[in-house]
Amino acid sequence: MALINGENTAIILFFIGVYGIIARRNIIKSIISLGIMEVAIILYFLATATRTGALAPIGETIDLTLVADPLPQALMITNIVIGIGVTAVALTMFIHLYHQFGTSNWIKVKKKRNKNG
């Protein structure tokens, strides 16, 4: 099995996203890192469900032994929709946060939050 395949790439990509969340203090970059993690998960699901030469599960006359597993693909469509929702809500919240605190740095926001209470 090749070392560089979909699953390994997905896991590495996932932990790149994790690194971005842990190491970056910019809220926008945190949201982007969440997006990277989500893409990695999608890649993982799709990579596990297919193999070289597999056909797309569309149509009625195709050979069923060659078809890629359609279930992960259906799941990932749902996951993409959720991901869009999460990103949209997070960015909207960030706009409100920025209006209130005037900064996009987690540490500075935290300091300002505690000062007022």
């Binding site: 998960i41 993982y44 999460v86 809500v89 997070a90 926001v109 935290k110 939050r113």
Partner: peptide, 25 residues
């Protein structure tokens, strides 16, 4: 839309989504 609640809500959302992506993987 209280100032502190916005920060708390945002923390809550992002931390939980972060953890749930572990669940999905």
């Amino acid at each position: 839309k209280d100032k502190r609640s916005i920060y708390d809500g945002m923390m809550y959302l992002l931390i939980n989504i972060f953890a749930m992506s572990f669940f999905l993987l």
